[in-house]
Design a protein around this nucleic acid. Structure first.
Length: 181
DNA sequence: CGACTTTGACCCGCGC
DNA sequence: GCGCGGGTCAAAGTCG
C-alpha cells in the first residue's frame, strides 16, 4: 500500500488544524433569510468547541465564523435551490469549510477524483467538483475560491464517507501507532 | 495500461 | 413555456 496522499505538508500537516479556517453547516442556514443567518451561526457556535475541528472529515461541525462575509452568505444562499435537488446525497450531510490557502487542493487524507469544473455566476473563479475515488463511496466535494477574497477557498463536502481515510488505514498498520492496539 | 484531468454537452429545477 | 444556472456525464487527452 502506498503512502496516503499528502503532497502539501507545508500547507497542512493534517487537515485542517493549522489553517485559518472557518466552517459552517450549509443545511443549517441555506434555508434561512438574511437576518436569520447570523443568529443560527451564533447558536451553532455553542456546539463547536466540543466537536473541535473536522479531522474526522465527515461529521457536521458548525462553528461561529468571524470571517464570514456578506458576500459569502449571499453566495451560499444562491446554492439553496441546488441543495433542494442534491439533498439525496449520502446521509444528507453537507459541511463547508472556508480556508485561507493558496492551494485549492485541501488534502484531507481521502483520495478525490475531479469530475467537473464550472464557471459560476458572480464569481470569476471556477468551481471544481470532486468525488471520492474509493469504490462504493459517493461523497462529493465542491471547491471554489471566494469572489471577494480569492485567498480564501470554500470547500463543501456532500455526504459521509463509508470508509476510513487512507491516512488512518495506513497509520493503523504501523506498529508504533496507538491505533494498532 | 490504468487512473486521472479536462472540457463541452447535457439534464434538471427554478424563476419569470 | 422558456431561459438561466448549477451539477453531472462522458469522451478524449495526459501522466506515471
Amino acid at each position: 500500500m502506498d503512502f496516503p496522499p499528502n503532497p502539501n505538508p507545508d500547507d497542512y500537516t493534517h487537515f485542517p488544524h493549522n489553517l485559518d479556517i472557518s466552517e459552517f453547516q450549509l443545511s443549517d442556514f441555506l434555508v434561512l433569510d438574511d437576518g436569520e443567518v447570523d443568529s443560527v451561526r451564533s447558536d451553532s457556535a455553542s456546539q463547536s468547541t466540543e466537536s473541535h475541528g473536522a479531522s474526522g472529515s465527515t461529521g457536521p461541525v458548525p462553528v461561529n465564523d468571524p470571517h464570514m462575509t456578506a458576500a459569502t452568505t449571499s453566495t451560499m444562499k444562491c446554492k439553496d435551490q441546488r441543495v433542494k435537488r442534491s439533498n439525496k446525497v449520502d446521509g444528507g450531510t453537507r459541511v463547508a469549510f472556508r480556508t485561507k490557502s493558496e492551494s485549492e487542493i485541501m488534502d484531507d487524507g481521502f483520495k478525490w477524483r475531479k469530475y467537473g469544473k464550472k464557471m459560476v455566476k458572480n464569481n470569476p473563479n471556477p468551481r471544481n467538483y470532486y468525488r471520492c475515488s474509493t469504490r462504493g463511496c459517493h461523497v462529493k466535494k465542491r471547491v471554489e475560491r471566494e469572489r471577494e477574497d480569492p485567498s480564501y477557498v470554500i470547500t463543501t463536502y456532500d455526504g459521509m464517507h463509508n470508509h476510513e481515510s487512507p491516512c488512518i488505514l495506513y497509520l493503523n498498520q504501523l506498529p508504533w501507532t496507538p491505533h494498532s492496539s
